[in-house]
Design a protein around this nucleic acid. Structure first.
Lengths: 143, 143
DNA sequence: GAATTATGGTTACCATGGTAACTATATTTA
DNA sequence: TAAATATAGTTACCATGGTAACCATAATTC
């Protein structure tokens, strides 16, 4: 998502930011650094995930359900409110996770629009299988 | 690309990282923070770009050509070597930028495989039009 | 110099992100 | 309580990321 292998040098940046203050130039250099670091993190995390048939979003959906205190399910709109992703993408991703047996969806009696989503055994197993490698990947790159 | 709105609290993290050292836990918390910050940056930058019919990658392609000292063109494989993106994606994106008149491609006489890519007037105009807002978006979010 | 390997680039296909426009049900308001 | 608005979720469509497999040309090796 930030695909520049070599971050611009200060001199390079100056070519484009002559009108900015030094403070602004530093902020921009820092932003580049953050975006590049995050890109590398996301890259290697995604590699780990796809080896386990997951993705960032698929993983996060499982996690937000699992981590919810005192509950074993969430409404789709609650998942949506915790994740910064568009509704159609969430709909599709939930659909796939349900098809693959990682989640199950039940209808709500009081609100017929709502869908109640919970982890299956398979979903929980998947999560616990992927978590150690996930933290491991992060730690490798944060050194 | 990291879609968790609220980063996990330390207590939350403990649920999943009990086997890790404190140093590792801190690294992970920092990684989350970096990924989240980068996501927000990329979000707003992309919004700015798409209002100008660009994207991160389209922008970076233009920039790496423009910033190259002493040259006005790059071979496609040189662009590829500067950007961390797969070759097919680069091929397609270059194709679109050429169709839209931001880039032109010429064949190389000595290596018949290679494509020489340079910015058109329109490409340069596009770049200079988008740059101030780009830095501005970054600075807004880095505060 | 023919065969092999490496390099530059493309095609085909899929996953995953977005927006716009939609349906269905709940809620609010007049 | 009928009409208007808000909320939950979906569908259709497109942009942009990836990998695998491929073609064409160059470079290397035997």
């Amino acid at each position: 998502m930030f695909f520049l292998k070599e971050l611009p040098t200060k001199a390079m940046l100056d070519k484009y930011t002559s009108a900015l203050t030094n403070h602004e130039k530093n902020s921009i250099a820092e932003a580049f650094s953050i975006m590049r670091q995050a890109s590398l993190l996301v890259r290697s995390i995604n590699t780990h995930f796809s080896a386990n048939n997951l993705s960032q979003l698929r993983f996060l959906i499982l996690i937000v359900i699992d981590r919810e205190p005192d509950r074993t399910s969430l409404y789709a709109h609650e998942i949506a409110s915790r994740l910064d992703v568009s509704r159609p993408v969430l709909t599709r991703t939930l659909k796939r996770l349900i098809e693959e047996g990682l989640l199950i969806s039940t209808h709500d009696e009081t609100d017929k629009r709502a869908k109640n989503i919970s982890l299956t055994k398979k979903g929980m197993t998947c999560l616990s299988k992927v978590l150690p490698g996930y933290f491991n990947e992060i730690n490798k790159l944060m050194k």
